[in-house]
Each structure stands twice: as structure tokens, then as C-alpha cells.
Design a protein around this nucleic acid. Structure first.
Lengths: 337, 337
DNA sequence: TATAATGAGTTAAACGTTAAACTTTTTTGC
DNA sequence: GCAAAAAAGTTTAACGTTTAACTCATTATA
């Protein structure tokens, strides 16, 4: 391993001077020396040791991307298709700015803080359900925190979210406007404080507004895989009164469509379906899925923008961005009027 | 920040002793002292500083997950659905074993090595196209390297791959056996040395074996998004002689199916399609897609198994695993006999 | 001309942890 | 009862980098 001292010796100069050149504090160094040092760096193949740097400067240039999971069972970090799109954008931008990205799932505040402290993290992207006590733990760390799709009662952290409530409200309202009155709700397991809960509340709110009584029996919760969707379909067909279904995730909507078709149901003739997310799949299923569109890539870009501004010590004019959604009409909803 | 010295002072013992306790070298420490130290650690909330540890021990407990991209334009780290499934499994297992995961795209060997050196990485997962010179650069680092879906002429690295050639060969042969003779090939842009090239070669090999001349004009290359697929469809319909199409990725197959249906083509009546990967989407499109199945999650699990064995200094009985594929017949292929 | 300011560096200490080489006391074997 | 071994530590140096505080010429200012 070649160190800064090797470069110093090779150029007949002190380690400090080399360090200064590397960090662009060249005003203290002559042009000639700068050149000699840069040549030596290239020649000897010097690569800065981040551990040493991090140790002395207590800034590591590492940003954590942490997903809070309630339990690790059956949890795949990337299960949410959103993550894939966002992480791609985040990695690219961070790299361009000289930062590094570390991935992690955590189950609680202690794990989270320990993780951040161990590495002297410079920043944190947080996804998943944000509990109140996370705030206290994180605030003490004094690092930029950007929340992604996390619902928070009160926090000073940056937050990039989505109008989950309104989106789901609009999905439901769309069915109502098309003359539907018996509308079910299918979703991956709803956890308190998560996006799915918001989407559930949006559904309920639209029903209430239209004077349609909410019925527990037509809320279907299950895992997202195809087999679970097939199970849900067993329940759905036991409610022949249903003419419409709001599904809080496109992946699941697609699974349910497949399951219903297997049972001989026609979509949208027998039952209309509205999804959520507008992942590329939505255009590919048959019939193409009417769904609530969100721009996942943009969410990632906005999040990393926030992060960079915070890292550069800029003061922000906004700390919260809630992206709006938009209904994309395709062919999975029948007009009953 | 509370350090190992704070713990030492609090318990009236030396830093080394604390370090020993933390690392389970307790044979040198009395039970009583161990307990006192552990209590102090808990009480004061001590968290080891990985930078310091890494600096002195030249082992960081960080594993890199690096994706080699030819050019960063239009490249999303997670574009390949495989990555999502694999990274989930890898993160979980690494964490359980006290390792950390850093994500990165690189464009060349230099970037790769610099990345690994900066952080004193303990191991590397590598995906994407593996160039010969990568080997020389990596070998000098003396860290475990596990290749994922990378084709390599000769290397001492562990390798978890897939029978891409055979899978694609079987996909093509399936069409031939069903009486097809005019079979096109659609794929995301084929790069030398990648999995897509293998799949392309498998296609050609099956044609050759059946005595069907290969025609350049019916190989269609494009990006994977829906609009690019629609473009491909413009070209495909200009070859009305085609009765079958091998598509080297399910995502693309789904896009092409949509595009073709928009143009009034019936699948499989007008044209039969075989995909590759068997992502969940394959069951959800209409008609359900006949495709080549691979177990992406297993790939990730095997890769991380390799890594852990290498990290633990175990000698391996195998260093190469090539997963086999299997044709899953659904409804996108018509029997012409 | 004396003094201040600038340019181009250097030295020494510090960051938190670990490894190697010691030390001191107690126990064991014969 | 004495040497050897084990138990339970300690001391010191080192890992590679940065930062704060110096130094020593040379140039500019009044």
C-alpha cells in the first residue's frame, strides 16, 4: 500500500504538503511542487485511505441507505420496486459528488444509530416506517437525514413523499364516478404509519364522502406474490356483489387480475380494478391497468438533491416535498353508468 | 463520542483489555472484569469506530457490490431485476455475519481497484462484463472475489452463473420442435462477453443444429423500455415470414407482446414468443409467457455462501457454480405441426 | 529602512483501535 | 520448596491522514 508519506518522500516534501495538494488547498503550494506531487501520485498509484481520513476528520463520505423493517422475516430489501429505481439515481449522483453508499436494513432505532455511528456516516436516507423515537436518536447525530416515503408527525428532517392518501382517494373516486358502489380494497399487509395505511385511509375517505358504508369484509390483505394473490381471489369471488377493487400496489393488482381470470372472471366486465404506482408492468398486463401514477425515479432524484444541499451546508427553502399522483386511465375499469 | 479509552477508565482497566473483551479474546481476562466492561459498554453506549479498527487491522468488514457498466449513460444500477433479488439476500446474510455492503457502479478496472483500496474492502461481488485486465488488477488485492453472471475465460475467482447458452438454445429448440423455422431474436443491446451474448449464441447454435440458416435481419436489438419495444415491433411486422421469436429477457418479451398486440398481431396465433428469466411478470401477461426459468434468489444465496466461506478462510471444493435453467411452458407458443 | 504581509512550506500531535511484547502475580508439578 | 507455566493483565507503537501552529525567506508598504 502506498501512502501519502511515500509520495512525500518521492517528491522530497512533507506529508502535509501532499495532503494540501490532494485537497486543492494549493494556494499554499508552488505550481512546480503541485505538478511533481501529482506526477508521483499517478506514478506510484496512490489511493487515499478513507479509514484514516475518516478517523481524523470525523467525516467518512459514506451515506447510509437504510430500510426500516418491522421484522426481518420474509423481508427482501428490494421488495419494493421503488427502491430499485431510487437507489440507482441515488448511487449515480452520490458517486459524482465523491460520496459512497452503504445499504442496510434495521429493525429498530438502536440498530440504526449504531450503524451510523460505527461508520461516522455523513448522511442518511431512510425508508420505511418512521417511529417517533427514531427522531430523538437521529437528532443527536447531527447529520443530514432524508426521509423517503415515511410518514412523520413532526420532524426537522427532509422528507420526500407521495400523496398516497389523495392518490388512493382518487382511485376510489374514479370507480365511484364510473357508477361503482361495491368497491373492495386489496393490499399487502397494512402496517401502522406506512404508505399502505395512507392508501387505505384514502380509500375509506372516498367511500365516506360518497355515502358508501365501509365494510371490513371486503378489505383483503396478503403478501404480494402470485400465490398469495390467488388466495385473495378465493375470497374476492365470495363477494359477487363487488363490481370494483382498489389495489394498493400494481404488482398485486397484476397478480389478482391473473387469479381472477383463472377463476373465469372477466376484467373489467365482471370486476373493475384500479392499481397504484404505475410500474411498467401496468401497461403490459391484459387488460392494461388503470392506475395511480407516481414518478419513482424523480423521488430518488429529489431525495439526493436534498442530501447534497444539506451536505454542502446550504440552507433549504423547503424541507418537505410531497409528489402528487395522477390517474392513468387504461382499460381495467368499466363504466357502469 | 465514547471511545474504548472511556470504557477503560470507567472500569479501571487498560484499553487493550477492553479491546480483548470486545473481540472475545476473553481467555486473557477474568470473568469479573468481563462483566464490568460489558456493563460499562452498555451504560455509556459505546460503539466501535470502524475507521480506527479498519485502519489498524487493515480489514474493514466492508464488502463491495460492484456493477461494471460499459457506459454510465442510461444505466440504472438496478435495471437488471436480478440485482434486486440478489442484493436482498446478500445484504441479509452479510449483516448476520457482521459485514457491511457498499454499492457502486464502475466503468473500468482503475475505478474498481481504487474503490476497493480506498476502503480496504474485505471482499467483492462483481456483476457485469468481466474484462481480462480486471483479473490482474483484482488478483493483486488478495481479497475474496465472487463473480455473478460474469463470463470469464480463466480466473481463480468464484463464479456463480447461469446456463445462458443452453437456456437460450433450449428456448429456440422448443420453437423448432413446435414446427417453427422462421425464428427471430430480440434482445437488449448485446455486448461482448455478457450474458446476452451467450443467449444470442445459444439461439444461433440451435438454428445451426436444425439446419436453419442464420439471418442477421431478424435480430432485433433495443433498450428494454416499452417505447423501444414498440419500435422493435415496427421492424418485426416487416418480417411477416416470422412465426416465432426468442426474446432474451422477459421484461422485453412483455413489452414486445404489448407492442405486437397493439399492431393487431395475435400471440401465439400470428407469432409465438419465448422469453428468458421467468420473472413474476411472465405469469401475469396475457397470454402467460413461455420462458426459461432461473432462480435469481438462489443465485444471490450461493454467491454470499461463497463469499462467507472465502472470508472465513475455508478451502472450497468448487469455485464455479453454473445454475441450470428449465423451460416453463405457458401459452405464448403455438404448435405448428 | 523597518515592519508587515505573503508565499511556501514544516513539525508535531491527534483521531480510535489493535498487536506484539512485556510484567506481575498466582498456581501447578515434581 | 522451587522452577515453570498459567492467569490477568499493561505498555508502547503503529495504522494513514489531517489540522493547528510554527518557520523562514522574500516581497510589499509606510
Amino acid at each position: 500500500m502506498v501512502t501519502i508519506r511515500d509520495i512525500a518522500e518521492a517528491t522530497g516534501v512533507s506529508a502535509t504538503t501532499v495532503s494540501n495538494v490532494i485537497h486543492g488547498k494549493d494556494n499554499r503550494v508552488s505550481a512546480e511542487t503541485i505538478q511533481k506531487i501529482n506526477e508521483a501520485i499517478k506514478e506510484l498509484g496512490y489511493v487515499p485511505n478513507m479509514s484514516a481520513r475518516s478517523l481524523v476528520s470525523s467525516s467518512s463520505r459514506v451515506i447510509g441507505f437504510v430500510n426500516h423493517v418491522i421484522t426481518r422475516e420474509n423481508t427482501n430489501f428490494m421488495e419494493d420496486p421503488f427502491h430499485s429505481a431510487a437507489i440507482g439515481a441515488i448511487e449515480a449522483t452520490l458517486r459524482e459528488n465523491g460520496y459512497f453508499l452503504m445499504l442496510r436494513t434495521v429493525e429498530n432505532a438502536e440498530e440504526l444509530v449504531t450503524f451510523l455511528q460505527r461508520w461516522n456516516m455523513d448522511g442518511l436516507f431512510f425508508t420505511g416506517i418512521f417511529k417517533d423515537k427514531f427522531f430523538d436518536s437521529l437528532a443527536g447525530l447531527h447529520i443530514p437525514v432524508v426521509l423517503l416515503d415515511s410518514y412523520v408527525h413532526t420532524s426537522g428532517f427532509c422528507n420526500v413523499g407521495l400523496e398516497d392518501f389523495t392518490g388512493s382517494y382518487n382511485a376510489t373516486k374514479h370507480l365511484i364516478e364510473k357508477g361503482h358502489r361495491q368497491i373492495g380494497f386489496a393490499s399487502p399487509n397494512i402496517k401502522d404509519g406506512g404508505v399502505l395505511q395512507e392508501r387505505f385511509l384514502g380509500y375509506k375517505s372516498a367511500l365516506a364522502e360518497a355515502g358508501i358504508p365501509f365494510e371490513k369484509g371486503i378489505v383483503f390483505q396478503q403478501e404480494m406474490d402470485l400465490n398469495s394473490c390467488r388466495q385473495i381471489c378465493n375470497d374476492i369471488v365470495e363477494h359477487p356483489e363487488l363490481t370494483g377493487l382498489v389495489v394498493s400496489a400494481d404488482i398485486m393488482a397484476a397478480g389478482i387480475m391473473t387469479g381472477l381470470k383463472e377463476k373465469g372472471k372477466r376484467i373489467p366486465d365482471d370486476i373493475s380494478i384500479v392499481g397504484f404506482d404505475d410500474i411498467s408492468l401496468a401497461q403490459l398486463v391484459d387488460p392494461p391497468l388503470t392506475t395511480i401514477h407516481q414518478d419513482m425515479n424523480l423521488k430518488g432524484r429529489l431525495a439526493v438533491d436534498f442530501m447534497l444541499q444539506l451536505l454542502n451546508g446550504k440552507t433549504l427553502d423547503t424541507t418537505e416535498i410531497t409528489l402528487s399522483t395522477r390517474l392513468v386511465e387504461r382499460s381495467s375499469v368499466k363504466d357502469l353508468r
